[in-house]
Structures are given as C-alpha cells and as structure tokens.
Design a binder for these strands. Structure first.
Lengths: 221, 221
DNA sequence: GGTCTTTTCTGGACTCGGTACATCAATAGA
DNA sequence: TCTATTGATGTACCGAGTCCAGAAAAGACC
C-alpha cells in the first residue's frame, strides 16, 4: 500500500510522540532522575533502543518545547529589518522568540526542581542549546557588519547568557510572573547597548572614572 | 608520631598529585575520552575508589589549573577599590584573575581537541565553574549597590560568558597569542559598560534609532 | 507473484562513569 | 591499649549511551 510519506522503507510509528507522553507522565510521577530510559520506553510500549533512535540524549526530553520555539530563531533573523544595527536586530529577534512562551507553559527544563540547581546534566543540555544559538547569532552579527568580527562570539554568548538567566528567573518566579519577553528584554538590553556603543566607536563616557586597567576598547589582536 | 597536619586519622598519601600526573600522561597518550578512570587510577597505583575520593567527577581533571586560579576571584573582590562602581570592580577583578594565566600554559580544558567542541561533558564542567563564579559576582555586585539586584544575575552570567568565550578564543589562537587579559578585557568591557550605563540611569543615546520593542530599561517586576 | 532496497524497530551484549557499603589500615589522642 | 577519625580498598550495583546483527514493514522494479 502506498504509504502517506512518499519514502520507502518501514513507516515510522508514532513512537516519538508516545515517548514524549510517557516521559511526561513518568516525570510527574517519579521526577526526571527517578525515571530511567528503560521505564520510559517500556511505558511507551517500545524498545529501549527505539528511544535512542528518536532522542540522542535523555535530557532532550526536557527541552522538546524549548527546542521547538528555538527553531524559530533563524527565521526571526531572516526577516529582520536590514536597517537595524546588528545588536538591535539580535535584541528584537530574541524578544520575538521569547514571545513564543506563554506565561503558563514553563518548560520542563526550568520548572523541575528535580533537575534544577545541582544537576550537571541540565546544565550541559542547556549549554548545548546556547552553543547552537550562539553560532547562529555570531554568524548573523558578523554577516551584518564585518567590524563585529573580533567580538561576535563573546557578544553572542553574553547576550544569550543574559537572556537564559532571565528565563531562569522568570521560571522560578511564581505563577504571577510577567511575560517572559519582559524579563529577557531587561537583561538583554544592557548587553546589546554596551556592544552597540563599542562598535559605534563612541567612548562610553560615564563608565570609567578610573583609568581602565588596560586598553579597554581595543579589538583583540 | 605527630603528623604534619594536626588532624587525626590516617594521613593522606600523595595520591592526589599522583593521580593528576597519571591523568596528564594518559591524556597525552590517549586523549581525554580515551582514558578511563580505571586506567588512570591503575597507573597512579591506586584504587579506582581512591580516585573518587579526590575528584568527584572525571572532568575535574581538566580544570585543576583553572580551579586554582579561579579560587583567587573572591580575594580579588575583597580588596577592590570601594570607590569603584560595581561593574568596574568586576571588570578589574576579572582581568586580575586572567593575569594568572601565562601565555604558555593553556589549561587542559581548552586545548584538548579531544574534548573541545562536541563534548557535552566539557560544556557541563565549564558551566559548573561559571555557575560558581556567577554566584560570587552577583553577590558582590548586589552588596555594592542594591539597585543592581534585579539584574545582578543576568549581569554576572553575561560578563562571565563573555570572559569565558574570550578565553576560548585565546586558547585556540596560536602560540603567538597575546596575554589572556587582553582578550578578556576586550570582551568584558562592553558588557560592563552596558550595565554601568543602565544602572547609572542615563539613556544610551546612540543605541536605539528605532523605538525599542518594549520598555527596554525597566527593571524586572 | 517474487526478489531487492530502504527504513524502523528489536535484542543482546558491552563499556564506562558514578554510587553505596562494608571493611581494612594508619594515625592521633586519651 | 583502646577509641575515634580519616584514608584507602573491594565488591557489587545502577543507568546512560554505544554497537551490531538481524527482524519487520513497507516501496520499487522485474
């Protein structure tokens, strides 16, 4: 019979969605660390190996929602106003992505006290996301303005770190929290402003009442 | 016999140093991922459990040098000029810490191509360090000036992310690289300037030719 | 109908990091 | 000499992640 997707080969089941559901259930019942991959796949009625066919790492389960939203970042860059300075374009793109999260649905990764705080696993998986996005941001900024090259990466990381920290604060605020975008905006704005100033080559007058320890605004190398 | 250290109990051998040495050797021979904890402890002539007595995680071995230098950060804060605005104090403290690294001795964590890039393990261990330092920075900033409270954490993370990224760039530059402090300075300065401006409550005039997407400089909450 | 090929899914065995626990060894102090 | 403390070892275990060989389910082509 001609299967829906034109491809050859055995059609894939709904395994992925089922695994996500099973995991969500088990996380509620036993927490993240308390649930093993074996249990999750068993409840999903699927072999343990099938799990690894869909998720390369257990912690991917914590980020399914986030990953879906994050996937929109390149698009947000694609239709950024070309007249905007790169820092502002990044600023706006991040806010647009942040708007993808309702005040209600805080992602697994940020709520689960189980994994928050001490867990090296969560940190690692979070940084994996930031690494990916940092590459996108750095590439974008550099393409916009070649003069940003030397500090494109530090800027990307700084701005994403600020944003991610804001998201963490947002998550641990109560249910009364304001929209995520407001938190992200407050944290990201100063970083963008700082680099914008730096790249526009106008000295930041208010900042160094004492002489800087070394030449502050010289590009690397 | 009265042992050197006043403490009771069996005196510790030189196990820690021996383990570090053995690890360094094996990392050179087989790379980080290629060397197992069992091998390291065997070469050190010590049981595998003893390894975990001295290092809680394998990746700690990558950061021994860094951790020693990083331990100096609180001290750098302790004798910071009280007249300095908090952002500048942080800026200077970071440069002082950065000066602890000679151009020659790039730490394991940053050189080893084996673990760079893809390794989730390295990322996790790096973030663990940044987490610790971010807490120190945020606490310091907040103690200096209560008005920084809302953004102390985002600032701490942003500034450390910028610095860490600069360190990574420094590490992957050739042997001809300039001193680390210069890289860190270039990356950290804009972040500090941006937050300094924000906290000094003077609008960043050059930054927003277009109106900000939402109230950029409002504190969170 | 048959064979291919391609893909999903399964089973089993394995490695390695990390933990738990009981126990031994060596020291200081009483 | 007895005890408390701390370093070190042995053993057993758990769970994540990898590898590989092969089965199940489809399309494609004859």
């Amino acid at each position: 019979m001609n299967h829906a997707s034109g491809r050859a080969g055995r059609p894939e089941g709904s395994s992925r969605a089922i695994l996500e559901e099973a995991a969500a259930e088990l996380f509620l019942e036993q927490g993240y660390t308390g649930s093993t991959i074996a249990q999750i796949s068993r409840r999903a009625g699927v072999s343990r190996n099938t799990f690894f066919h869909y998720f390369s790492v257990k912690s991917d389960l914590l980020w399914v929602a986030v990953d879906r939203v994050l996937a929109g970042l390149p698009a947000a860059f694609a239709d950024a106003d070309p007249a905007l300075p790169p820092t502002d374009a990044v600023h706006r793109a991040l806010l647009r992505v942040a708007d993808g999260f309702g005040s209600a649905d805080v992602p697994w990764a940020l709520t689960h006290s189980d994994v928050m705080g001490t867990s090296a696993e969560l940190q690692a998986s979070a940084v994996a996301r930031i690494t990916a996005q940092a590459a996108v941001v750095a590439r974008f900024v550099q393409a916009r303005d070649a003069r940003t090259a030397a500090l494109a990466e530090p800027f990307a990381w700084a701005v994403l770190a600020a944003g991610a920290t804001a998201a963490a604060i947002w998550a641990r605020s109560g249910v009364q929290r304001a929209p995520l975008a407001r938190y992200v905006d407050a944290a990201v704005a100063p970083v963008c402003a700082g680099f914008a100033q730096h790249w526009s080559d106008a000295p930041v007058t208010a900042s160094h009442p004492h002489p800087p320890v070394s030449g502050s605004r010289d590009p690397v190398r």
